[in-house]
Every structure is written in C-alpha cells, then in structure tokens.
Design a protein around this nucleic acid. Structure first.
Lengths: 201, 201
DNA sequence: TCTCATCATATGATCGATCATAGGGTGTTT
DNA sequence: AAACACCCTATGATCGATCATATGATGAGA
C-alpha cells in the first residue's frame, strides 16, 4: 500500500504532452519550446526536458542538439513501417498465448456502440484495446512494452484526425479475428498480421 | 558538414554507463547514484539524470520514484522474453528485404577469426553485426530502431560474462542461415527465428 | 543592391543550490 | 527487551541562474 506517493512531475508533464498531441494542440512539425511549456505549467525546465527525453524514446518527438524538440512529422511511408513492425509483433503474440475471447468480443461491441454514438474517441480507444488485449495476453512483458513503445494509441488518434480516416468499418473487420481466436484457428496469426497491415495507408 | 558540433554531455554519459555495464564495472542490481557519478565525471546531476532516463527506456536500468536507479537484473525467463521478441522482429525483417550475403559471410568469417584468437569481445561484436545486418537490410528504420532498443549488444556481452556462455559454436551455426539467404530459401524466416530462439537459456 | 561580418535575441545545455523523501540509527517509554 | 517516535543523513526531485549555440536582424563595404 502506498496511497500517497505522487508521481514524478516529469510523468505528469509527459502526459500533458501526449494529451496535447492527441487533442491536436500540438501537431506534426510543431516546435515544443522547453521554457515556454515550463512557464505555462509552472514548473522548471528540468522536468520538462526529462519528459521530452522520454517522448523522444517513444518516437513521438524528435530533437537535434541545440535545436530543440518538435513533434514528429510522418509520411504514409513512415506509418507503413510502424504497421509492418506492429503486425509482426502481434503475430508473434498469437504464438505465445491466446487472448481472452470474451474480452475481445467486449471491445468489438464497444466499438460498435461508439460508432453508433459518433464517438471517434471511443472507437479508437476500443480499437486499441482490442489489439492491446492480444499483446498483453501473450504473457510476454517485453513484447507488450515494445508494442506500447510504438505509440500506437497516439498515432492512431493523430492519423485519424489528420488523414480524416474513417474507423467506422473497423468494428466489423474484427469479427472474423474473434471467431478465428475462438476456434483456435492455427492461421490466426497470419490473419491478424494481414489485418494490421490493412491499416497501413 | 558539421565537423564541430560536439555531442551533448548526456550522450557521453550514457556511453560511459553502457561501456561500464559491458565491462562489468556495473553488474545487475548495482545501484547507480546520480551525484556520485556526476562528481566522478565532473559534470552536474542534470545530464546524468537525462542519460539515466534514456537507459531506462532501453530497459538497461530500472528506477523507482525517490529510490534511484539500478542496473536491471534479469532472470533466464526475462532473457527468453527478449529473445522471443527479437526472433519475431528478425523474422519480420526477412520478409521485408534480404541482407547482403557477402556482408553476412564477412561477419561469419570474423567470428571464426575472433574465436581462434580467443577474443570474446570480437565474437560478440560480429555475432551482433550479423544480426544487425539482417534488420538494417529490411529497409525499415522503425524495425531497426526497435531491435536496437532491446539492447541486444549489451545484454549479449553481459549474459556471456555472467552465465559463462561459450559463443564458440556460434560461428558455425550461422552458415546454414547464410546459405538459406543465398539461395533465397522462402523458409529462411522460420530458420532464423528458430536460430534466435536457440540462444535463449 | 548584394554580400558578409557583427551583433542581439531566443533558446537549449548545463550548473550549483535547495526542497522533499526514504532508510537507518538512537533514545525513550512500557 | 520490544515498540515506537524522533531525528539524521544520503539521495532523488526540482528549481533558478548561467553558459553556449543557433537564428535572424542590422548595417558597413563593395
């Protein structure tokens, strides 16, 4: 038990940045000025820098020495690279451990609901949740952490907003996968891989 | 052209730490005290902290709030997780682009030479080089960077030193792979995957 | 006007100092 | 002796200030 233990400032700052990138406050190419952000958040420059280092490792921002940080731009080709890696990781995950089929069904149902309610945000959240269930169910923590490090959630939000992608059709696309997991189809890994590659522009 | 542009201090500090972990100066579980290291390197605490954040993202150290950083310990089970991910990544790489067979042969030759000369360090360097050639040849920069983020090189050095693993037999193990790449064997991905999984304890 | 050197400003990089927390030691109370 | 509260030290977290670099503005000279 440790009910007090506040999280370090740098973590809150990192979350502010991530949230800002999701909401569109900072878009690709935008400069992130350490001192301005520090002043706005009423903190000093140091924890801001540390948060930026973290986001750099997550490939969400890029920075050059003495030039500062900016939100990473990305081309469709870059996105394709990410999806290729992600597809491989998720295929690997299916070889290590099967996900909970009820959990998958729940995410699909929520995706449908969110689509009906017109909630882009909800759709993305459960779309990501569906795939996250697969990687965490692998039981391989390294795999899960590498998958997270691709920044799937943020990039999905950002690319939907920037490219005006329509995730409506996604919910239905997932049902064949659920069925394949349910019947223990040995081809499910390949199916999943092709499914993920299908996201790529 | 930018012949001057010194690298940021934090990068040098990070390299010192990595080198120290490879050389055995810091072993798993060892505490890394920010102020002591800063004093020793004649720098201040800030860049040391930033270097530690980077190494944390690379999973080379772990840290808890207000508790400080220590070199990550790892069990054979942890290593197995890393190798499973790595095997999947390298298999994915073979689907995206074939490596240079001459380059692979060169690495194998150097592995043999290093083994003959009794140079553990040389063996590891070319062992890693062999696999790095495969992932970089995929042409997918994200894949390569994720692969690097597993800290393959450091962990290979460390586990050989700690577990007294003998890499002598490794050079020969790679020849079937080279041949498979050379003849364009469609099974090379699976072969490579099994090869990498074979490293796991 | 064009070119280039100089300088001013903004900002990243680093520093030294302070604040806050964790862990261990010590003494007091029972 | 055991339990507990208190304090002390080491150290991580954060701050405010300074140093160093990059970028754009200014103006002299051709």
């Amino acid at each position: 038990m440790e009910p007090v233990a506040r999280p370090p400032l740098r973590d809150e700052i990192r979350d502010v940045l991530v949230e800002g990138m999701i909401s569109g406050r900072w878009g690709p190419g935008d400069r992130i000025v350490e001192r301005r952000l520090a002043a706005e958040l009423q903190v000093s420059q140091a924890p801001v820098r540390e948060a930026l280092r973290e986001l750099e490792a997550l490939r969400l921002i890029e920075s050059a020495p003495n030039k500062g940080a900016r939100v990473r731009g990305f081309t469709p080709a870059d996105l394709r690279e990410v999806y290729q890696v992600r597809a491989g990781l998720e295929e690997t995950a299916t070889r290590l451990g099967g996900p909970s089929v009820p959990a998958l069904r729940a995410h699909v149902a929520r995706m449908h609901e969110a689509a009906a309610a017109g909630s882009l945000d909800g759709q993305v959240r459960h779309l990501v949740g569906f795939h996250r269930e697969i990687v965490t169910a692998s039981g391989n923590a390294v795999l899960a952490s590498v998958w997270e490090s691709l920044g799937i959630e943020v990039w999905t939000h950002v690319s939907i907003r920037l490219f005006r992608m329509r995730p409506h059709e996604n919910a239905a696309d997932h049902e064949p996968l659920v069925e394949a997991f349910d019947r223990g189809d040995p081809e499910v890994g390949r199916l999943l891989r092709d499914h993920v590659l299908g996201y790529a522009p």
